[in-house]
């Protein structure tokens, strides 16, 4: 593994983002906008705002990175740049780690800005530390990236890639305990939710916000999902095609 090739790839991905200021603005502004709406939707139920907004803060980085990664890697496949790179000395792992590094940095910036605004002007209370919260957000973002990378290998067009969001992420969101506590769902759904990565992203975020213990286990499970999905993602990058 060559660190300079990973860095070069991360810098390249970040340069691509930098040339697309509208996407950067949307990555930052959209979560703040949604948080603000939530704040006023639940204006008379501050407790519900605490619960829902807190959990959503962990979901945003995942959603955004899922979309960006699935479209970006699909574009690499369809424009031939991926094939071009794999002919060169770049390994699949270096390619994926380059992306992870770039999107990890993007997620860091997003998490710092969005959580600061949520905790400041919007009055969201985080009982745990903001530092741990940002760490969770980055892990969530990387999880979204890994999922995006994985599903992009099943998509032939950007239209299909975008449709994977409602197909892959929304069911996870519904079962994650964000809307209804998981324990009060029918048993079967609760069991299924145990096998979905987003469940642990929402759990960890909620625990950090409420100052509860035990988010370490959630983070551990997220890390396992992350490694497995990145492995599948790497396997889906084919050097040889028909």
């Amino acid at each position: 593994m060559n660190i300079s090739r990973i860095w070069a790839t991360a810098r390249r991905v970040l340069s691509q983002l930098r040339h697309d200021p509208r996407t950067i603005a949307l990555m930052i502004v959209a979560p703040i906008f949604l948080m603000t709406i939530l704040k006023y939707v639940y204006f008379n139920q501050p407790q519900t705002f605490q619960r829902v907004a807190g959990s959503l803060l962990g979901v945003f980085p995942m959603l955004v990175m899922f979309l960006i990664t699935s479209v970006a890697t699909l574009r690499e496949r369809t424009t031939g740049t991926l094939e071009r790179l794999l002919i060169l000395p770049l390994t699949k792992l270096e390619f994926i780690l380059g992306y992870a590094k770039a999107f990890g940095i993007a997620a860091l910036i997003q998490a710092i800005i969005v959580s600061s605004i949520a905790m400041g002007p919007l009055g969201l209370k985080i009982a745990g530390s903001q530092f741990v919260f940002i760490l969770v957000a980055i892990l969530d973002a990387l999880l979204g990236m890994a999922l995006g990378l994985f599903v992009s290998s099943f998509a032939k067009t950007e239209f299909q890639a975008v449709q994977f969001m409602p197909a892959i992420l929304l069911p996870q969101l519904l079962l994650s305990g964000l809307l209804v506590p998981r324990a009060s769902m029918p048993r079967l759904l609760e069991i299924i939710s145990n096998f979905l990565p987003l469940t642990y992203a929402v759990d960890a975020t909620r625990k950090v916000i409420s100052g509860g213990e035990g988010f370490g286990q959630d983070l551990f499970l997220i890390a396992i999902f992350l490694v497995a999905l990145l492995g599948f993602g790497a396997a889906s990058l084919k050097r040889k095609t028909k």
Binding site: R12, Q16, D20, T79, G80, E83, R84, I87
Partner: peptide, 12 residues
């Protein structure tokens, strides 16, 4: 290797 349709990053 030069591919037929330029495999370069249009946004760089």
């Amino acid at each position: 290797y030069l591919t037929q349709s330029a495999s370069i990053y249009a946004d760089l």
